[in-house]
Simulated assay, not measured.
Amino acid sequence: MTINKLYNIEAIKRDFSLGKLLSILLDDEVYPIRKQKLVFEKSEIFYMENEEDSYVFAIEKGISSVFIGNQLVNFVGAGEFIGLHCEGSTDETRFSGSVISDEVVVWRFHFHDVLAKIMNIQEGYLYHYNYMISIYPIYLNKILAMGADVEERVFGFLEIIADKFGEEDGPFVKIPSFFTRKLLSDYINVSRMTLNTTIKRLEERELVKLDDRLICVRMPMS
């Protein structure tokens, strides 16, 4: 019998949220594990593993980009995790984070400690399952979007970033300034020239506007 038949997916997302998982990992009363609070400055890179161990990072403050090898695949902010689903990668599949906000505050845990702790909790595996079902659609959608029309692809990714990290500005949502054109073009996998040209076309269609070069995205009506 599958998990989907045993549990309601929305209930899993609610009852086994990543925010609750972080609280559990920080709680030393039951099965204490190693942890370290770290602060990374803008542009610093941190890796999910080294020669000694593999790590899981929980973001407490700030925003980081996520790379698999040299490929920019995601952006994560407060309350999100990096590295909970990977271990034993090669150089081409090695996960890393790079700080794009002024700083990022993280909790670093040892990968096997995290797995051991959640497996010692009743139905704790559902925290890991919840993480997996949240992370893989992001990577899958990014791959599928590569075959889309350029304007559709650019607007779709701008919409995702605005919805997750932006600030409301009337019917638009303003994308923070640290999402530079270079960063966006790397993420969307288009040249900076193509990105700029496409943004101009989207502006003509009134789907985006520029506010002192900051990109503002028109969001769908709720």
Rank of each mutant, 00 (worst) to 15 (best):
L38A: 07
D186Y: 06
L202K: 07
F16E: 02
V154M: 07
C86P: 02
V30E: 15
S17R: 00
L210M: 12
E151S: 12
K174C: 14
K13G: 00
F40W: 07
E60W: 03
E49A: 11
E29W: 05
S134F: 01
Q36M: 10
L158G: 04
A148Q: 13
R153Q: 14
L195Q: 06
S222D: 05
V105Q: 08
E204W: 04
L126I: 02
E206Q: 14
V104T: 05
N8E: 15
F111Y: 15
F16D: 04
F67M: 05
F75R: 01
P171T: 11
N70I: 02
I121M: 12
R181V: 03
L158H: 08
R218Y: 03
E152A: 14
G147K: 10
G97W: 05
R192P: 04
K164D: 13
Y55P: 00
V39K: 09
D169M: 04
M119F: 15
E92Y: 11
M219A: 04
Y139E: 08
E204I: 04
R34K: 13
G83M: 00
F67E: 07
F172L: 03
K200N: 12
I121E: 15
G88W: 11
N189C: 14
T197Y: 09
S96T: 13
E29F: 07
I199W: 01
H112T: 14
N120M: 15
Q122S: 13
E87R: 14
E52M: 11
R94C: 10
M193T: 15
T194V: 13
S43I: 05
L21E: 03
I24Q: 04
I12A: 01
I175S: 06
A58Y: 04
E159F: 12
Y139C: 01
K20T: 08
E159P: 05
L140D: 06
K200S: 14
I24D: 02
D91H: 12
I215G: 02
L72K: 08
I63C: 10
I138H: 00
A148I: 06
E44S: 12
I188P: 09
R94P: 03
P220S: 06
S177K: 13
F81Y: 09
H128I: 11
S191I: 05
I59S: 02
R201A: 14
D113R: 01
S177A: 14
V99F: 05
V76C: 06
D102R: 08
G19K: 07
T90Q: 10
E159V: 03
L202I: 09
R14S: 13
R201N: 15
I199A: 00
G77Y: 01
T197F: 08
V99K: 00
V56N: 00
V73S: 03
D212H: 15
S191F: 10
L214M: 12
E204G: 06
P137T: 01
E80Q: 15
G170P: 10
G62N: 04
R201I: 13
A58T: 00
F172S: 01
E123L: 14
L126M: 06
Y131T: 00
I133M: 09
L207N: 03
L202W: 09
G62T: 06
V217F: 08
E123H: 15
S65P: 09
E92S: 11
E80T: 04
E203T: 12
M221T: 11
